[in-house]
Design a protein around this nucleic acid. Structure first.
Length: 876
RNA sequence: GGGUCAUUAACUCAGUUGGUUCAGAGUGUUACCUUGACAGGGUAGAAGUCACUGGUUCGAAUCCAGUAUGACCCACCA
């Protein structure tokens, strides 16, 4: 036979993925079976696979494959997200390389470039998922900018607008000067950054007096429109009603009072710049202050910046500090660490900016979504600990800024017919808009030229929050058969980092637009970190290339490795050793297969007793493990399920069972044992298939010719049957006997080839059915009970039974004595602790009866063992 | 500032309603083994005051309170 000793993953994996694709096993159509559905968290269309994807898609594939084998109609819908800001930023960068500025292009031209980019780089990540073995229904692949998804988004916008939930507001928003767009609050990451707190003196109008303020942003003094102090702050009562002069600008601004000011902080007086700070804006509104915006869209200063006009805000900060210092206005500066908002995508420092944007009212929308997670349990978060985070966010939710000043994305379906900011209608098409506009204005002579669509596009998440609905076209056509069959979906697998961005909003959308949950369970994976516990990120360069990993360790190896140590919700410290472990496991299975496949089967040789009992034992062991993994799956503890199977296959099956039934070298194996072994092997690879699909399919098909209908991927997953607990217990004792004999051989340097005899004095039951097996495993020619201990023999004790191996050489009495004394000391110590417990009246009175009985049994056992050891000692 | 979670062997982690000698696994490490499936393997061993301090209990790694350290999430303090 020429099966290679080393399992070659690469060729095998390609072969079976193609086979699965050719036979259409991944595709799902509604039928009479129960559906099991997962929608993929759509990765960025132009993204590449990283370790986070590996983890989370492996989990999805495990769930899907298992359910498919269990007879569900499993459907895993793949797709990608247009990722407006990220993709637009990439396109802008690429155009810049070619010397083209975004502002040189029309919207249409830019979008053309973006599509070109998308087609060129898009979808690569889905190809990479295939290498991982992802059994997605590729016929259902969706993109968040697909035409039908666009129609869904527009419809939803229109619907929410009609309900009065979408409105335009002139508000302070998060401005990303790099991408020149607003961001939602969730897209702003606050980072600790070292800065300085500058103390400045503002002169008081018409006097020599001054008021001192502290600021971290001296460049914004150009937009100051007030100084604010606490009304009860006695230090400033003399300034009441006076005006201060803004340095450099020379503008006189009022000194106002507001309890917002913290008297303890800084100098106790605060400069107010309503255009550039959310709090200042609130105070400004309250006191009806002038709003002076000093920035352009790219965060350079505008005309209000005077001689700083056209310079960047950070350049200006430096220069203005120098100028203030020269003029004696800067009193001092202190080092000060504070949190600075940055853009999640571009990393640019966010500029709070007042502008007119579209908002979605969240207050009422969140109610059913809160209820579903907190009260009814219709949607369950796994692990449960995320419920609190979810609740907190939901209960403190603010209106969602859904407009973005980007070209790439779903354009806001609002059409203006006049110059006023509210002279618009919301419509699905321009034609419809015209009709609506005519109705609204009563001007029948309006035509298409008079109508222009809003320039903004929608936040990416405004399309992805519909994902579980829109991939089945449930918005446009709620009665369609796919939607009715697959929705609501079952499980969602994603990272906790997008719990708010995506998961929460999908739950909101589900209830609002379908009246039902979008999914039942949300499995939140941990983050993949490097060995120094840092998040894996491109900028740190600490993320290994998943493709390289799969080439080195095989997709199965990587899948197993990454799952082996990743409990739900716990971060995973990436270590290549895990992948190595996964690969070695694949090799172990492979070699077990080689062994079994190499056996010659004899029709007429009889089944040895040892094999018979081995089969009975392994059957029970398998069933026990299967039952355990079922429990683990119930709780989404995939890692524990896999570890259990790993041990079953490596230890129980390979190290024990195969050794137990292995025929003598050169001898054939009897048919019954062979068939049982192959049956066990096949069951092993069935329950392993969801985790390691490729090698299992390879072995499955190698064992026997299989038609496409008999492929492992669609074979029936074993069902739990219950098992014989007793045989498992009995075998534990046998195991101990076997390893004790092996140890003695080693200690005394007795070759395995030298046959031994084993005798024992029985104090507790030992099942004689196993004796042949002991014989085979230890090369012992007979196992026999005797009434009393043997002289001149090696001894050991298992349970309360004492074993003897007659030994021709001289027994080292001293060494034996030492060994026995150690055992004695151990048992005595144990006895003491048990007796201490039992002599404690309160224990005896309070503990449950079963516990006390256990203790009594322990006491009796210990006493028996002590007696036995003492007797042995006495005989020396 | 508020919240959540963690702290168990050198490392990464289990320990599922408090009760068997319950202190575990994998990796690493040590010693031995070219045994006919597998050195990507086998056998055996060493290794921990379960972060700390109290409390509850007959009994605590497990429950409670506090402390320390770390991680993450949320929040408009110049």
């Amino acid at each position: 036979m020429n099966i290679p000793a080393k399992y070659n993953a690469i060729t095998v994996e390609e072969k079976w993925y193609s086979y699965w694709m050719e036979n259409n096993y991944f595709h799902s159509e509604p039928d009479e079976r129960e559906a099991y559905t997962i929608v993929i968290p759509p990765p960025n269309v132009t993204g590449v696979l990283h370790m986070g994807h590996m983890l989370n898609n492996t989990i999805q594939d495990v769930l899907i494959r298992r359910k498919r084998m269990q007879g569900y109609n499993a459907c895993w819908v793949p797709g990608t997200d247009h990722a407006s800001i990220a993709t637009e930023a990439k396109v802008v960068a690429k155009l810049k390389e070619q010397g083209i500025k975004k502002s040189d292009l029309t919207r249409e031209q830019f979008i053309e470039h973006a599509w070109e980019w998308t087609h060129k780089h898009g979808g690569l990540i889905l190809e990479q998922l295939k290498k991982l073995g992802a059994s997605c229904d590729w016929d259902r692949t969706k993109f968040t900018m697909d035409e039908d998804l666009n129609r869904s988004v527009v419809k939803i916008f229109k619907d929410l607008h009609a309900k009065g939930l979408i409105y335009k507001g002139y508000r302070m928003v998060n401005w990303d000067p790099e991408a020149k767009t607003t961001l939602s609050d969730e897209e702003v990451i606050y980072m600790e950054k070292p800065g300085k707190l500058y103390y400045l003196n503002y002169a008081i109008e018409g006097s020599d007096d001054f008021v001192q303020i502290a600021t971290t942003r001296p460049e914004t003094i150009l937009g100051d429109t007030a100084i604010c102090v606490h009304p009860e702050d006695k230090r400033f009562t003399h300034l009441k009603g006076k005006k201060a002069i803004v340095p450099i600008v020379g503008r006189a601004i009022p000194i106002i009072e507001d309890p917002y000011v913290d008297m303890e902080f800084g100098t106790g007086s605060l400069k107010i710049t309503p255009a550039h700070d959310p709090n200042d804006k609130l105070i400004g509104e309250k006191h009806q202050l002038e709003v002076i915006d000093i920035f352009n869209d790219d965060a350079t200063l505008n005309a209000y910046g005077l001689h700083y006009e056209g310079k960047d805000r950070f350049v200006v900060r430096k220069e203005i500090v120098a100028e203030l210092k020269d003029k004696g206005i800067l009193v001092k500066s202190e080092d000060y660490t504070h949190k600075v908002g940055t853009s999640e995508r571009t990393k640019a420092v966010i500029e709070p900016k007042i502008s007119e944007q579209w908002f979605l009212k969240m207050e009422d929308l969140v109610k059913p979504a809160i209820d579903a997670v907190l009260n009814t349990g219709e949607v369950q978060l796994v692990p449960h600990k995320f419920v609190n985070t979810y609740r907190h966010w939901m209960e403190n939710i603010r209106d969602w800024n859904i407009s973005r000043q980007l070209y790439w994305g779903h354009r806001i379906p609002a059409y203006y017919y006049g110059q006023g900011t509210n002279d618009y209608v919301v419509a699905e098409t321009k034609e419809e808009a015209l009709v609506l506009a005519r109705q609204k204005t009563g001007q029948d002579d309006l035509n298409e030229k008079d109508i222009r669509q809003d320039e903004d596009s929608l936040d990416t998440w405004f399309s992805s929050w519909l994902w579980p609905i829109s991939v089945f076209d449930g918005i446009n056509d709620p009665e369609n058969k796919d939607f009715k069959y697959y929705y609501p979906t079952n499980d969602l697998v994603t990272g906790p980092d997008i719990l708010f961005f995506w998961v929460a909003r999908m739950i909101i959308a589900g209830y609002e637009f379908t009246g039902d949950k979008p999914f039942h369970h949300v499995y939140l994976t941990g983050l993949v970190r490097d060995k120094q516990r840092r998040k894996m990120s491109k900028s740190l360069g600490n993320s290994p290339d998943p493709i390289e990993l799969m080439n080195t360790y095989g997709a199965d190896g990587v899948r197993a490795g990454i799952l082996m140590s990743s409990a739900a919700g716990n971060d995973l410290l990436f270590d290549e050793n895990l992948m190595l472990q996964g690969r070695n496991f694949a090799n172990k299975i492979w070699n077990g297969f080689r062994l079994v496949k190499g056996w010659e089967v004899s029709e007429d040789s009889e089944q040895p007793k040892s094999a018979k009992v081995a089969i009975a034992w392994y059957r029970a062991q398998f069933e026990k493990t299967l039952a355990f993994t079922e429990e683990q799956f119930e709780q989404y503890r995939l890692s524990d399920a896999l570890t259990a199977i790993y041990k079953l296959v490596w230890e129980d099956f390979s190290s024990w069972f195969l050794e137990m039934v292995k025929p003598e070298f050169g001898q054939p194996i009897d048919k019954n044992t062979y068939e049982a072994t192959v049956g066990f092997f096949e069951n092993n690879i069935k329950i392993l298939h969801p985790f390691m699909p490729f090698i299992t399919e390879e072995i499955w098909q190698y064992f026997n010719e299989r038609s496409p209908e008999e492929a492992l991927i669609i074979s029936a997953y074993p069902k739990t049957k219950g098992f014989d607990e007793l045989i498992l217990e009995e075998f534990e004792m046998i195991k101990e006997v076997i390893s004790a004999v092996r140890n003695l051989r080693k200690e005394k340097n007795i070759s395995f080839k030298e046959s031994l005899e084993l005798y024992f004095v029985k104090k507790e039951e030992i099942n004689p059915d196993f004796f042949d097996l002991i014989g085979k495993m230890c090369n012992v020619s007979k196992v026999e009970e005797v009434k009393q201990k043997l002289e001149n023999a090696l001894t050991f004790r298992v349970g309360s039974n004492e074993f003897f191996i007659p030994f021709s050489q001289k027994i080292d009495v001293e060494a034996e004595t030492v060994k026995l004394q150690e055992e004695l000391a151990y048992h005595k110590g144990f006895l003491a602790s048990v007796q201490k417990k039992l002599s404690n009246e309160r224990f005896v009175n309070n503990a449950p009866e079963q516990v006390i009985l256990n203790e009594r049994k322990k006491e009796a056992d210990a006493l028996a063992k002590i007696a036995m050891v003492e007797k042995s000692l006495a005989s020396f």
